[in-house]
């Protein structure tokens, strides 16, 4: 009885507030927009038969006919993929240096990476607005040392979105890679060097493959949330920055078209299912490896 309650309570909570809401999103994506409260039709008040008869895939057909949505999905995928690669390029050397640092420094370095993660995401994105604007800190600096002679336009462009994603998601990339490198047995690299590898070869042939799990975990942790990102494109991006999270938000709050917003969410979920499953597999494998 006790065991049943222990399983049933969190299970029921997640079913009611995580799984069932998705079913509702799916249902509403098949409905039509209506001038009523709630602003869609049909509802179950119409009776079971007419309810199911009125559902159709019209909104999905609409999504394929208007190329705004295709371009938004494609551009989100591109922005998420490129910024994942950039985060990896920026994060790997940091994680590597942390793992090579004297052991008594490591907890402090770890805390320095985690600290920004505890700080408000919104504030960290906002901090860049002051830096990247026309009269911002970066432009003042570049003008001051004479690299450019007129201010660069960075804020409200896609470039600013890349900077924002790399900045805010960097800890998610560093930590799993650091965890993998920290466990790595240094004598393996020495062995490779003794056997005639150059340092670069040893890095490429030994260190990188052994930190593979960390790289994979970090990349998923950046890629998946970046794909649906809303805050960064709406604060740092410009009108030319198309991201699906922002499109969904505007469809819902500005156009009040709930059925189309739901259809956008269903497709985004379908795109994400594959990376999410791959990510979970990777996590499970790691958990089994370490057990």
């Amino acid at each position: 009885m006790q065991r049943f309650a222990l399983i049933a309570i969190p299970y029921a909570w997640l079913l009611a507030l995580f799984l069932i809401p998705f079913v509702i999103v799916f249902k509403i994506s098949l409905s039509d927009i209506a001038l009523s409260i709630p602003p869609y039709t049909p509802t179950l008040d119409d009776g079971i038969g007419p309810f199911f008869a009125a559902l159709d895939f019209e909104n999905f057909a609409f999504l394929t006919s208007d190329d705004l949505y295709w371009r938004a999905y494609a551009s989100s995928l591109r922005i998420a993929a490129l910024s994942t690669i950039m985060t990896l390029i920026v994060g790997y050397p940091i994680a590597y240096a942390m793992a090579r640092a004297p052991e008594e420094w490591r907890p402090t370095l770890m805390m320095l990476v985690i600290l920004p993660f505890w700080t408000s995401f919104l504030i960290r994105v906002y901090a860049w607005m002051g830096i990247l604007s026309q009269e911002g800190f970066l432009n003042q600096f570049l003008l001051g040392i004479g690299i450019v002679d007129q201010p660069l336009t960075i804020l409200n462009t896609t470039t600013a979105v890349y900077i924002g994603i790399v900045y805010t998601y960097l800890p998610f990339m560093i930590l799993p890679i650091f965890a993998a490198l920290d466990r790595l047995d240094g004598s393996l690299i020495e062995a490779a060097e003794d056997l005639g590898c150059s340092r670069l070869q040893a890095f490429w042939l030994v260190t990188i493959p052994l930190s593979k799990n960390g790289i994979i975990a970090g990349s998923f942790l950046v890629f998946i949330p970046a794909l649906g990102e809303f805050v960064i494109p709406s604060l740092l991006g410009g009108s030319e920055t198309l991201m699906i999270g922002k499109v969904l938000w505007e469809e819902f709050f500005n156009n009040r078209d709930w059925p189309v917003a739901s259809a956008v969410a269903v497709i985004l979920l379908l795109i994400l299912i594959i990376p999410i499953i791959l990510f979970q597999r990777n996590q499970q494998r790691q958990a089994e490896d370490s057990a």
């Binding site: 969904l248 938000w249 819902f252």
Partner: peptide
């Protein structure tokens, strides 16, 4: 993605 979680909970 937070937009999906938010939307689905609101609709619930």
């Amino acid at each position: 993605p937070e937009v999906i979680t938010g939307l689905s909970l609101l609709l619930l």
